[in-house]
Design a protein around this nucleic acid. Structure first.
Lengths: 157, 157
DNA sequence: ATTTATGCAAATCGTTTGCAAACCT
DNA sequence: AGGTTTGCAAACGATTTGCATAAAT
């Protein structure tokens, strides 16, 4: 259990931070207050958040925008966060799947831009696996995939 | 055959331009030289191109960058082009599916950023249709979907 | 002649970066 | 102390926009 990437699924939020701390330390970085706050926010969101949403939630803490950007980039680098990009100009961030234990996709509202998580059945992922093979035969090595459904969320009618 | 959106599949490039001209006219716009050139370029590419790639191909014509951006935006509006966004900062553009007659997805190289078209079997799309239903049950109206496989293209090893 | 499209340069806007001060260990 | 992180402001880079000129009908 000294290794990471797999020992988180059974744990609660505490374990999350332990794991995050470990991943940062392995990369020679500290688990600073700001980083902790950022992780706390994206972990509690349940959907990808934009930078401003993250700052808003974290309002009291008064984290500088540039620091938030930097923290997020670092967290992405060490595999704690993931950058999600919907069709608009700003990036959104979510907790990395290795920390949530759930592979998922997204529903993107073209009207308000909101992005919701969407879980798909294994059957679907099996098909994807088959397509990964096809791509490989064509010389393309697939490392990840992304499936989004775009439209109108319930709030936007 | 007076209507559009369906009368193109059997046609060649000439028909393409006829259809594009019609769609623009319906929107009260002219099929100018620049617009024609842009359509010609994205139609001949076979994969989504960035603005600079489009300008490069069209080098001789010396089309202003801002005009190209404007043309592309207009073409997207009238349903002639589609904006594709890979993970990086710049947008790519491709001919709208209603003009190619082929629904497809993309292979995105994380290394060079190149985006290739990728056709998936009907079976896959059937699964997607099922997921669209699921989303609908949840109050989300799906208008489109996007499926990308990310990794390394043949050239980048 | 009238309307629409283009080019150029300036303006936007999200995101990144340089650097000195603040923090940790 | 020695190295890392933060905040602030300036820098960036893709995309957009204002406006006077050119093109099309």
């Amino acid at each position: 259990m000294a290794d990471d990437h797999l020992d988180v699924h059974e744990g609660a939020i505490d374990d999350l931070h332990v794991t995050v701390g470990r991943r940062l330390r392995v990369a020679g970085m500290r688990y600073s207050r700001s980083r902790y706050a950022v992780v706390e926010v994206i972990a509690g969101a349940g959907r990808p958040l934009t930078l401003s949403e993250i700052l808003a939630v974290d309002a009291g803490r008064r984290l500088a925008q540039s620091s938030a950007y930097r923290n997020l980039a670092e967290l992405v680098d060490v595999g704690v966060a993931r950058r999600v990009d919907a069709g608009d100009d700003r990036s959104r961030f979510e907790l990395h799947e290795s920390l949530t234990g759930h592979h998922h996709h997204h529903l993107v509202c073209d009207s308000c831009g909101r992005v919701e998580d969407f879980h798909v059945p294994d059957e679907f992922e099996k098909q994807v696996a088959a397509l990964v093979e096809v791509a490989a035969d064509g010389g393309f090595r697939v490392d990840a995939h992304r499936f989004d459904m775009l439209g109108r969320c319930a709030e936007c009618r």
